[in-house]
Design a binder for these strands. Sequence first.
RNA 1: UGGGAUGUCGUCUAAUGGUAGGACAGCGGUCUCUGGCUCCGUAUGUGAGGGUUCAACUCCUUCCAUCCCAGCCA
Length: 560
Amino acid sequence: MDSESKTTPTNFIRNIIDDDLESGKHDYIITRFPPEPNGYLHIGHAKSICLNFGIARDYKGQCHLRFDDTNPAKEELEYVESIMEDVRWLGWDWDERLYYASDYFDQLYEYAEILIKDGKAFVCDLSIDELREYRGTLTEPGKDSPYKNRSIEENLDLFRRMRDGEFPEGSKSLRAKIDMASPNLNMRDPVVYRIKKTEHHRTGDTWQIYPMYDYTHCVSDALEMITHSLCTLEFEDHRPLYDWFLDQLPVPSHPRQIEFARLNLTYTVMSKRMLLELVEGGIVDGWDDPRMPTIAGIRRRGFTPESIRDFADRIGVAKANSVVDYELLTFCLREDLNKRAQRRMAVLDPLKLTIRNYPEGKIEEMDAENNPEDPDGGHRKVKFSRELYIERDDFMEEPVKGWFRMAPGKEVRLKHAYYITCEEVIKDENGEITEIICSYDPNSRGGWTEDGRKVRGTIHWVSQAHCIPIEVRLFDHLLTIADLNDVEEGKSYLDYINPDSKEINTKAFGESSLRDTKEGEKFQFLRLGYFAVDKDTSEDMPTFNRITGLRDSWARAQNK
RNA sequence: UGGGAUGUCGUCUAAUGGUAGGACAGCGGUCUCUGGCUCCGUAUGUGAGGGUUCAACUCCUUCCAUCCCAGCCA
């Protein structure tokens, strides 16, 4: 990971840390990644993970993994496990620094009693609806709760009885006494504890009351001696409350909350709610659908952790809302896999090709390098014979200007094999081309000749008798619009779902070496793109996801 | 129309009073047994107006635009 840290650009958060180190405010940096275990992680979380763990790595500090599990109604063990898997997959390690906010429930409760004893919190009997009314609006101040002036003794008694389960859910809450007239709604006597008679995935039925995020998060950070508590922009308004709680309590430290902009990616959604709707609405095939921006989805699609880390470094960290071009993500993938992925040949849209002057029944083994970018990549043998399949797109009966693939009378190179020339085109009654008849030059074995003549076009192929059927899954963007901010008035992102985001191709063939592959293995199919073996793969039908295509300057020029 | 924040190439991001730079995308070329890769070249930007200054993305000021906040969610 050393080579990566070299290229990690600086950002305003690292500048703050540099200052804090230089001023002596800190001599050791501790960050944390604090997911709520109520859903799957997505690539936006990956940004946060790489930020927090990356800082810990570069400053030789620590990064804690802490589950923010204060709401048992929404959280499950299943998510805890998938989150840990995703963080590990991304290449980060929290060692023994695994924490749960629920581990602090006792401490949090003690601190709450301190708040009460100091006259800074009270038990409120207002219902949820009443509370909303009393809160006021964005432009009007709120009103004090009629219960705000209860005695400390009464508050303590009531709070303990809340803890002991004497009151029904929603009937009472513990609230901080701050300022109902504050222009910041978060400061209008916020709820600190609510009654919830739900079993918690870790503490079971120990608790009848659970602390709220604003109270829990800052205290957890302080207890863990976090130095810099990094969160997303929507918590900016919560910072005064974060600081308020820590100022009232005898906590061992007072971390600094710093907010940064969350990641948005073009042509997709990134909110838990929308992602959930895609899954539950059957628009995608689950959380790990290769089209999903979830970590599980991009992993299944075939993206590498290296490419995601590189991406996180390249997008930077700032406070301005932004939408990053999906192309940058595919760029990072190509850059990674170009150096590492072995090349294979596969034909997605097969067109039969027969070499008239090649002996029937003859089989040759052609030598093919596995990766021209990798000197240690080695070579493999690919069987060649009289009958082949080539890509239908690689033949054009009446070639356009600039075309240098196959066309009648034109000599092209079969990659790793021979020069061939198209002599005849066979069509069916509908005029569809069904077969190409060629001749080959026996002196061009290996794909070159001694006379050094130039053959511009090189195409990929598979031998009919030796190739295997494969399934190939092609994906496109989930949405037809790049930027969610461009959703028209009165419409939702659901009105922009791309109906053609998935294409299952079962007519493809691959070279025989593709028979033995394992889930997750990645290849470059020559001239087609990068592919990863899907979890649905089987011996009978090796199954590949196209991660992304290759850059195709020919196609781009044609589309102009 | 309360409060909080943010505006730099198409996109993302640097420049902390001293030459507006990088990356992706684009375009053009080079190279090539992948129309891939490589390499080279190239265009495009400080939201607007005022002010301070020898000098402003940076400081002041007015405006404009966008985002966030009225869960006993996080």
